[in-house]
């Protein structure tokens, strides 16, 4: 039951967290789950422990409470070999346009708060010259649309942050993986109509992340075909994009 390698999942309330933790637990990693809803995380942690006989711990953690991030990291009994950031929030675009506190929260959860915790982990891994950092960003960050550009711009910032960090940590042998999912059938988009065949299940995305991380990749789309969808989408010039009614 004693695990030597641990992964830390930030935003473990995501539907992707449990299938992802299963894959790592099956491979023998211990699991730290961190996000705000601690009751849910405790239930998940117990389930993972029973299934795979690996050490699993749940922590109450808020991405926006940056003041306590260092203390949180210091409290982990064994430092993780990798961190996977799933935390994110879509916010409500219309409200964000009127109320900066709403905008600020979207920017913090998707970007600046993650920068805080990732830098803390990155500094440790850099010294240890090992490990990995996985950031789940979004295809939304590749182009602004009126329906969600606050969220999208935070994701754009996050993607750029990860690419710079990758460059910095290259010589320390720390892997930085950026994941750009398309649509995922999770509670984030519950009730929204998305095209069935291009919407991935949380299990599929978890598998994509696990395989890409274990094989040392830098960047992936999930599902893979989003690469082509985005290629076409990004070819449309801004002068045309601005006229479209993009949902």
């Amino acid at each position: 039951m004693n695990s030597e390698k641990y992964i830390l999942i930030i935003g473990a309330g995501s539907d992707i967290a449990r299938p992802l933790a299963y894959l790592y637990a099956k491979a023998g990693y211990g699991i730290y789950l961190a996000s705000r809803n601690i009751e849910k995380l405790n239930r998940d942690a117990n389930d993972i422990k029973l299934r795979f006989n690996v050490e699993t711990q749940a922590y109450k953690f808020d991405v926006t409470e940056t003041a306590v991030h260092q203390k949180f990291y210091d409290s982990l009994p064994i430092k993780p070999i990798g961190v996977i950031c799933l935390a994110g929030t879509l916010g409500e675009q219309k409200k964000s346009e009127q109320d900066f506190t709403k905008t600020k929260n979207v920017l913090e959860v998707n970007f600046s708060g993650l920068v805080s915790i990732i830098h803390i982990v990155a500094n440790d891994l850099e010294q240890r010259k090992e490990g990995f950092i996985v950031g789940v960003s979004s295809v939304a960050g590749e182009k602004g649309r009126k329906s969600n550009y606050v969220y999208a711009s935070a994701k754009a910032g996050f993607t750029t942050f990860l690419s710079g960090l990758r460059n910095r940590l290259f010589t320390s042998h720390v892997q930085v993986l950026t994941v750009h999912p398309g649509f995922i059938r999770t509670k984030m988009i519950e009730g929204r109509e998305t095209l069935g065949i291009i919407t991935a299940s949380p299990e599929e995305v978890a598998k994509d992340i696990f395989i890409a991380q274990q094989s040392g990749k830098d960047f992936i789309y999930s599902k893979w075909f989003w690469r082509f969808i985005m290629l076409v989408f990004k070819m449309i010039p801004e002068s045309m994009i601005k006229k479209l009614d993009l949902k």
């Binding site: 539907d15 239930r43 998940d44 117990n46 389930d47 029973l50 299934r51």
Partner: peptide
């Protein structure tokens, strides 16, 4: 289907 936690063994 999302209600699939093991609780004890």
């Amino acid at each position: 289907l999302r209600f699939n936690h093991l609780l004890a063994f």
